[in-house]
Write a protein that binds this DNA or RNA. Structure first.
Length: 235
DNA sequence: GCATTAAAGCCGC
DNA sequence: GCGGCTTTAATGC
């Protein structure tokens, strides 16, 4: 593996205020790893020995109940730190991180965390900005789960996915990584069957177009109406 | 309105 | 061809 170039980290917010020399130091302390899709980078409850920066791909943050049910808390796009247990005052990881696509990940020993925070300008403030955004999103989701019906929850999840990870294609905006009905059901506390029925109905109305593991939103405006409960029900 | 169960079809490796 | 993914329908709370 050749030496990583400084330009890799320059655009990433936690490092954007640093000089090339400092980024060099940081890169020389990092390990790089490529992960296949669907592989755990770390597991909930494990000692938080390292923290990570996602260089490419997507990470799915999930928790598993004692009965084996999986819940997807959040997706993380490239350019963000994850596994930052120390910033949360924890010595173990609070959730499991699984790759939602192929991914390239930088990792550092957690003992460097405090050093990075004190030594590198902007590292802490950018990190807490990211943490704040994640908490905000989870807050929103709690309210949705408690107050909205399934159709609206699924619509909201789809809108979040295309906003955060959408890629423009000919007929709309496609979610940039593979998503199954099961995945969507784990984001919205419903079953894959209900998600399947909703997607089929929306497809007939021209709101989405989907094939196996790929979902494109073709009419985002209409989806916004659906998530507000302002559109005629699909079922 | 939605979960559960069951059954069968389809797609990609 | 097989397993993972998806659809559809029936039933019940």
């Amino acid at each position: 593996m050749s030496r990583l170039d400084e330009s890799l980290l320059t655009p990433m917010p936690p490092f954007s205020r640093l000089e090339k020399r400092q980024i060099r130091e940081i890169l020389d302390l990092a390990s790089v790893r490529r992960f296949d899709e669907g592989v755990a980078v770390f597991e909930e409850g494990a000692p938080a020995e390292r923290f990570y920066m996602l260089l490419d791909g997507y990470i799915r943050v999930m928790r598993i109940t004692p009965t084996g049910e999986q819940v997807i808390a959040l997706h993380i796009p490239s350019g963000q730190l994850f596994g930052i247990a120390q910033a949360l005052g924890r010595t173990t990881y609070p959730a499991t991180s699984v790759t939602a696509s192929e991914a390239i990940v930088l990792g550092w020993p957690m003992r460097l965390w405090d050093q990075f925070v004190s030594q590198y300008d902007g590292f802490a403030s950018e990190t807490y900005k990211t943490v704040g955004q994640r908490i905000g999103e989870m807050n929103t989701r709690i309210v949705e789960m408690a107050t909205q019906q399934v159709e609206q929850r699924v619509a909201n999840s789809l809108l979040r996915l295309i906003n955060q990870t959408g890629r423009k294609v000919e007929n709309g905006i496609e979610i940039d990584f593979p998503v199954t009905r099961q995945d969507l059901s784990e984001m919205t506390a419903t079953t894959l069957h209900t998600v399947s029925r909703l997607l089929s109905a929306w497809e007939k109305q021209g709101v989405v177009a989907s094939r196996r593991k790929r979902i494109t939103v073709t009419d985002a405006h209409r989806l916004v109406l659906i998530c507000r409960g302002e559109a005629p029900p699909s079922r």
